[in-house]
Design a binder for these strands. Structure first.
Lengths: 225, 225
DNA sequence: CAGCACATCACCCATGCGGCTCATCGTATG
DNA sequence: CATACGATGAGCCGCATGGGTGATGTGCTG
């Protein structure tokens, strides 16, 4: 099964270069191109690519907005491609915007050609990949964001939840589905359900909505970060 | 200028393999090895490597603790190597622990050899690099953490909810089921479902659990009282 | 009056979720 | 060594939940 790719970039030469590079791979098929975000979205809707290579800076509609539209499609549109953002410059605002929108990767155009090719494969496989400098910032941000360990609310302490159960409860309170919790903790969904069942039983709650309430009321999570 | 590397892993064969692989590079010099975290820290203090390849799971002192000691050194120790964590296949909380500790990368041992080599170079250059699966989770986590620039202030924009919809949302945030909400407001359950459907759609939420979160985060309801 | 937003309710359908039971494994704890 | 607990995960089952579509009545407003 070949990987279908479209290339969205306002510079024709860049498109041609990437297309040539990727088409030379037996497992990659360039099925479309577009010079701006608006057309990029159209081409994507029409060709249903697995991966969209998206330049950040473009006329008409920039790559970020286009990425948002592709990754949060309107009703009726079921196709959701992976989006790999490309940029010439190393600018961090764009990075965060793109990742928030759900992009699967962020590469600089000066990366080695081999990196671009492998990035397409990685992204198509459902994984993600970032330029090293971007990774560094993301990690720094992550480390800064929560160096603080957990503090227990009074209600929590008496609840008799195990550490794992508490962890699951917190993810419920972040709005994750069972499947997402499973992925986040690297567990089978069934295990998550078991944990949740115990949490609900121990706390005398009926469903996850009440679990969210408990999490807020007990201070396990707090409004505003 | 060659990159000085030490390898910390409890499996001698793994150490030998990595050492051979890296030593074959003209710009990389393996200057030490250690079978556990404790000795790894000692060797690092003695040899002052640029990069420490650190297995996560080890006897005596695991890679996470060793990484913490290397990245947050006591007084008098000025040397601070870059730490590149390695693991066989566990991609779980270790990752977050390691990144929090300040590790520059996290790779799976089944990655292509070329990846390891380039990772060493990337890390030595002060950048960072993660295994694709790790990157994916980090991005997912990031996107979830800050889904939108926090339209803060108690003056929340409840994005066009009608009075009745707001009322229903509040009851959801009190933990009531659809049937209970219906009884509470003297409505048919179907009507409640319609209201909830609109609330979820207008707010871009998936289920009532997320609705509860929104209610707390927006200040519609507040913890305590 | 026509148009519109809002509230109300019905029907259908797919499925996420929670209840329940049971099994395995590792680590404390006695 | 036996026991208990925590974590993991499988299978089954029923129902609440959420999505979609459509209809009716009301009150406000141009």
């Amino acid at each position: 099964m070949t990987i279908k790719v479209i290339i969205v970039d306002d510079q024709a030469m860049v498109r041609a270069g990437f297309a040539a590079l990727l088409s030379a791979q037996s497992d990659i098929d360039v099925v479309g191109e577009a010079p701006d975000g608006r057309e990029g979205v159209e081409v994507s809707r029409r060709t249903h690519p697995d991966v969209v290579l998206m330049d950040v800076r473009m006329p008409e509609m920039d790559g970020l907005e286009a990425a948002r539209q592709l990754l949060d499609p309107p009703r009726g549109v079921t196709h959701r491609p992976k989006v790999l953002m490309l940029t010439t410059f190393d600018v961090d605002d764009y990075v965060y915007e793109a990742l928030r929108a759900g992009a699967s990767g962020f590469l600089l155009k000066d990366a080695p050609p081999a990196d671009l090719i492998s990035a397409v494969r990685v992204v198509a496989a459902g994984e993600a990949l970032l330029a090293p400098s971007v990774t560094r910032r993301l990690i720094a941000d992550f480390a800064r964001q929560r160096p603080a360990p957990r503090r227990d609310g009074p209600a929590l302490r008496r609840s008799g939840l195990t550490p794992r159960e508490t962890e699951v409860l917190e993810l419920i309170a972040r709005g994750l589905s069972n499947q997402e919790i499973a992925e986040s903790l690297v567990l089978a969904e069934q295990t998550v359900k078991t944990h949740i069942g115990r949490v609900l039983a121990k706390l005398g709650l009926r469903d996850r909505a009440q679990a969210v309430i408990f999490a807020y009321e007990s201070g396990l999570v707090t409004p505003g970060q």
